[in-house]
Amino acid sequence: MSEPDPITDLDELATAERWMKAGREVAIATVVETWGSAPRPAGSHLVIDEQGNLAGSVSGGCVEGAVVAEAMDVIETGKPRMLDFGVADETAWEVGLSCGGRIRVYVERLG
């Protein structure tokens, strides 16, 4: 594979492997369930390293910040977590999906 280009290289799983090989700690977040008008389908990934670098997406940008914060804990403890995001779910999470959908995101450490 040639040098990665941040604009054309949209493959987050290839990015995850590259980061891992470079010795970076990596967490993988995956949309496992959606209800209503969710922005990204089940199976979509957001890949996060211990510095907070991102690749991919699990929403249109609405919940990525919260997922990154959780991913930091997951990287540290190695324990996977399930996150629920919905609209007007202010007590559980400070962020919600403006589109009105609901998603479940599974966050796990790579390795």
Binding site: A16, E17, M20
Partner: peptide
């Protein structure tokens, strides 16, 4: 995720 699973998947 198991790193071997990721490597195999990308392959």
């Amino acid at each position: 995720m198991d790193p071997h699973v990721l490597k195999k998947l990308n392959l």
